[in-house]
Simulated assay, not measured.
Amino acid sequence: MSTHASQAFTLARTPFGKLLLSFADGTRHEGVVPVRAFPISAPDRGIALVSTDGKELVWIAQLADLDAAARQLVAEELGSREFMPQIQRIRSVSGFTTPSVWEVDTDRGPTAFTLKGEEDIRRLAAPMLLIADSHGVQYLIRDFAALDRPSRKLLDRFL
C-alpha cells in the first residue's frame, strides 16, 4: 500500500519510542522509519515512511506538508538515524600526503579524523563535498566557497 501525505494519517511515539503510523481507516503500523530520497541535495523533500519490512507506506513530498507535531517526530527520527556532521572550518592537516589527520570544526563541535586517501573526498552537486574518514563517518562541506580562506587553502591541496 503506497499512499501520499494527502491521505489522512497521524504519527505518534509508542511507549518504547517507536514511531506509530495510523491511517483514518484504522490501519496501524508500528516501527515505521522515515527515509530521505535525497538526504544531501534536498533533505526536506521526498521522504518515505517505510514499514519494518521496508515497504513504503507514505510518501511525503515536502516535510513542510506535515503538521507541526508530525514534522517534529519525523525530524527527530531522522536526526537519531542520520549522522553527517558539516565541516565549518579546517583547523589543521597533519600533512599533504595521505593518510593524514584533519582537525576540523563541525556543526557538532570540534573533532579530528584520519583521511585515508584523496579518493575519500568526493565532489557532489556543486558546491558540496563529502569527506569519508577512516571509520566510514561522512563529513559534509555544504559550500566549499563559504569556508574561510585558510580552510579552502588546506582543502585545495587535496582536490
Rank of each mutant, 00 (worst) to 15 (best):
L11I: 04
F96D: 12
A70K: 03
L20F: 00
P85S: 07
T14R: 09
R45L: 13
R13S: 10
F83D: 10
P39I: 05
L20C: 05
D67S: 04
S41L: 09
A37D: 15
S94G: 12
Q86K: 15
A61N: 12
D53P: 03
I90R: 01
F9I: 07
D53C: 11
S22K: 15
A64W: 05
L73W: 05
L21A: 01
A37T: 09
G54C: 09
G17D: 13
I47D: 03
P34R: 01
L19D: 00
Q7H: 13
S94F: 06
A37Q: 14
S94R: 06
R91I: 14
T97E: 14
H4S: 15
V50F: 00
T98C: 12
H29D: 07
T52F: 07
S51E: 09
I40A: 10
R45H: 12
P39G: 09
P43A: 08
A75L: 12
A24S: 14
Q88W: 07
A69R: 14
G79W: 05
E56Y: 05
A70L: 01
Q88Y: 07
A61K: 13
K18I: 02
T14Q: 10
I90K: 01
D67Y: 01
R81I: 08
L49C: 04
E56W: 05
S6R: 15
I60M: 04
I90L: 08
H4P: 03
T3Q: 08
S41G: 12
R28F: 02
G17N: 10
R91V: 13
S41V: 10
P85C: 06
E56P: 09
G79S: 14
A64N: 11
L78K: 05
F23V: 06
L20M: 06
R45W: 08
L78P: 01
S94A: 11
Q62S: 13
V32C: 02
A64H: 08
D67M: 03
S80M: 06
L49A: 06
I87G: 00
T97N: 13
L78C: 08
L57P: 02
Q88M: 11
S41C: 11
A68L: 11
T27K: 15
G17P: 03
I87Q: 01
